[in-house]
Design a protein around this nucleic acid. Structure first.
Lengths: 352, 352
DNA sequence: CTCTCGACGTTTTACGTATAACTGACCTCG
DNA sequence: CGAGGTCAGTTATACGTAAAACGTCGAGAG
C-alpha cells in the first residue's frame, strides 16, 4: 500500500503511472530486457530470440497497449519515415486526390505523410519545415514558383517534383499535358472549330507554361488560329473576367473565337459564366474546355469538357519515386497519360 | 590536412561533417557550453547569462544555421507544441479555411498543426496517430460519426470538437446554425414560400441532425409546411438525385414544394441541376438554398443563396480553445454567428 | 576578515529507442 | 577433450535537448 507521499523511482514494471508504457515496461511484463523488446517488435529477431519469447513479448506489448515513442526512435535513427507533401491549396480536389494516392503507397511502406498546404497559394515561398514539426526524410512538391522551389531545394532534402520541369528535383513525375492539349485541339478541330482563344493561368509555374507551349504547338500543327490569349488568376471570378474580355473584344482579323481553351477548370467555369452573362449559349455559340476534371466540372451546366488528370496515379508515383530516391536508386522521369472527357460544353462550331 | 581516412570522433566544433549542426556545435562556436546555448535560445536566460554572451550565442546559431532537433526536444519535454486537425475531406473549402484560421493562431503561439484528412470521408474511424508520425499535444476535430469520435477520445488527448455536440470533447466550438436556419426560413417566408422541402445530408453526424431539428422548429414557428424530406450523400450527384425525387413526386396534400432547403452547398448545386433537367427555372419556379458558402456556390448559375459559415473564425476559436484546455483552463462552449447570403437561387414564390 | 548573496556559467542527468558488443550455455567436430 | 560455433539473450551506448543541481568569482554586509 503506497504511503502518503509515494517514493518515486523504482517499480517501473508496473508501468501504471500516467504516461504511455515504454519498452522497459513491456520488457518487465514479459520478463526480458528492453533490448529484446526492441528486437522483437522491430521484426529483426529471427535467429536471435526464440519464438516462444518473441510471442511473450508481443503479448505483453499488446496487453499494455505499447506503441514506441516516435521521438525517441527518430532521435536514435536520424530518419523518420515521414515525407512532406507540399501542395498549393487544399480546395482543389486534384491535390486532395494526389494526397490520397501518396498516402496509399506510403502506408504500404510504413511511411507517413505530412501535408503542407502553402497558405498563400501556389506562389508563396513555403516554410514547411517549421510547420511540419517533425524531421522529414523527403519532400514531394507540386509545381511552384522558382523562388519557392529554390527555398525548398535549399533544405537539402530529397525532393520529388510533381508536374514540373524535369531536373528541378531528384525525380520528377510528370503528366502528359502535351498529349492532353493535342486531344483538346483534335476534338475541337473535329467539331469544326478553327478560331480558338486561350484563357491562360497567370501563375508563374512550369506546368502552365508547358500547357501554353503545347497548345500553341498543336494549333500550329493543325492549322487553327490562336485568336487571342488572356491571362487570369486561378479562380472562377478571374476566369469570368478574362473570358469576358475575349468575348467582347473587337474581332481580330481572323474573327471572333468559337472555342475557349482554358488552362484549368476554374477558369473554364468562369468562362461558362461569362458566356451566359453575355447571352451566348454554350456550346451552340461558343465551346469551352478545361483541364483537371475536378468535381466542379460536373457541377455546372453544361458539364465541362475537360482533360482528366491521373491525380491518384500522380500521388502514387510521387511517393514511389521518393522511396526509390531514398533508396539511392536513380529514377527516370515518369510521364503519365491523360484523357479527354467530352461533356456538354463543347459542340459543333457555329462557323465551320 | 586530413589523412586519407579521417579519424572520426573529436572536432565537433567544426560541425561541418554532413548532418545539421547541433547545440554542441553552436556552443563550440560561441565558446560556451551546450546548456548555455539551450538557455539563451530557449529565451529563459534573463538573470542567468550576460547580454553579451547571449548575443554571441545567437550570432553563432545564426551563423551555423542551427535549428534544434525536434525529436530530441520532444523526447526531453514530452510535449510537441503540435496539434492534429482532423477534417472529413480536403475538397470542401470550408475545412481548408478552418485550417487556415487554426494555423494562424497556432503560429502566433509557436504551435504546429498537422492536418489529417480522413481518407474515407466523414464516417471513417480515423487512425491519425499512426499517420501524424509525431507525438501530439492535442486534437481539433470536426463533427464525425460516433464510432470515429469514440476512437479519437480513446487516445486520451485533449480534444476540441468543431460544430459538434457540446460535451463531446474537452471544449466545443459551435456554429449557430439554428440561427442560420431561422434566417433561411425567414427569407423564404418573406418571398411568399410556405411549402418547403428539405434535402438532408445522409451522414451520421451531429451537425446535420442539428440542422434538421432547427429547420423543423423554424418551419413550425413560422407556420410553413415541410412538404417532404429526402436524404442524400454529400455530393452533387446525390443531391441531384434526391432533388429529382422531390420535384417529380406526386404532390402531397399540401402540393409541390416551391423551395428546397439543402443541408449543404453540394446538395444545393445538385438541386439546381435537377431543376434545370426537369425544365424548371430557378428561382422563378423553385427556390434553392444551401449551407456553407463554398467557392462552388458562386461558380454556378444562378449563384446560390446560402448560409455563410464563419470558417476562419471556427479555426481560430478551435485552436484558441485547445490552447486554453492545454493550459488547464475551463473553456465555455462558443457559438459563432452565421450570415445568410442572398444570391440568385431564391426568388418570390410562384404560388404565394 | 569572513559570510552571504547574486551574477554567470558549467556539469550532469533524463528522456526511450535501436543496435553494436558482449556473455553464457550448449553443441559439434577434429 | 578443447577449440570454435550457434543460440538466446543481456549490457552498454549514442542520439540532442532542457533543466536541475552545482560551482566560482566578486562585491557588499556585518
Amino acid at each position: 500500500m503506497p504511503g502518503q507521499h509515494a517514493a518515486a523511482g523504482d517499480d517501473r514494471a508496473a508501468g501504471s503511472r500516467r504516461s504511455r508504457p515504454t519498452g522497459h515496461d513491456v520488457a518487465g511484463a514479459a520478463g526480458v530486457s528492453q533490448a529484446t523488446v526492441s528486437l522483437v517488435l522491430g521484426g529483426k529477431w529471427e535467429g536471435r530470440v526464440s519464438a516462444r519469447t518473441a510471442e511473450a513479448v508481443r503479448a505483453a506489448a499488446r496487453e499494455l497497449g505499447y506503441r514506441p515513442n516516435l521521438a525517441a526512435r527518430t532521435l536514435r535513427l536520424g530518419r523518420t519515415r515521414t515525407a512532406l507533401l507540399v501542395v498549393p491549396a487544399l480546395t482543389n480536389d486534384f491535390f486532395a486526390t494526389v494526397h490520397r494516392g501518396a498516402v496509399e503507397v506510403a502506408r504500404a511502406h510504413d511511411f507517413g505523410i505530412v501535408l503542407y498546404p502553402s497558405p498563400e497559394g501556389i506562389n508563396a515561398a513555403p516554410d514547411p519545415f517549421a510547420s511540419a514539426r517533425t524531421a522529414l526524410d523527403g519532400v514531394i512538391a507540386s509545381s511552384m514558383a522558382p523562388e519557392a522551389l529554390a527555398a525548398l531545394r535549399g533544405e537539402g532534402l530529397p525532393l520529388v517534383m510533381l508536374d514540373a520541369d524535369e531536373g528541378s528535383g531528384d525525380a520528377t513525375v510528370n503528366i502528359d499535358l502535351a498529349d492532353g492539349m493535342r486531344q483538346v485541339v483534335a476534338h475541337l478541330r473535329e467539331l469544326g472549330h478553327h478560331r480558338i482563344a486561350h484563357i491562360a493561368a497567370a501563375v508563374d509555374s512550369w506546368t502552365f507554361e508547358a500547357r501554353a507551349d503545347a497548345l500553341h504547338e498543336e494549333l500550329r500543327a493543325s492549322s487553327a488560329a490562336l485568336v487571342r490569349t488572356e491571362r487570369a488568376a486561378l479562380s472562377v471570378a478571374d476566369g469570368l473576367e478574362a473570358a469576358t474580355r475575349v468575348l467582347t473584344a473587337a474581332p481580330s482579323r481572323d474573327g471572333a473565337p468559337t472555342a475557349l481553351v482554358c488552362d484549368d477548370d476554374l477558369l473554364a467555369v468562369g468562362a461558362l459564366k461569362a458566356a451566359r452573362r453575355l447571352g451566348l449559349r454554350v456550346p451552340e455559340d461558343v465551346s469551352v474546355t478545361g483541364v483537371d476534371d475536378v468535381a466542379l466540372a460536373t457541377a455546372v451546366e453544361p458539364e465541362l469538357t475537360t482533360v482528366r488528370l491521373p491525380a491518384e496515379q500522380v500521388g502514387r508515383a510521387g511517393m514511389r519515386a521518393l522511396l526509390a530516391v531514398l533508396d539511392g536508386q536513380r529514377v527516370e522521369a515518369a510521364r503519365l497519360p491523360v484523357q479527354l472527357v467530352v461533356r456538354g460544353s463543347t459542340g459543333p462550331s457555329p462557323h465551320p
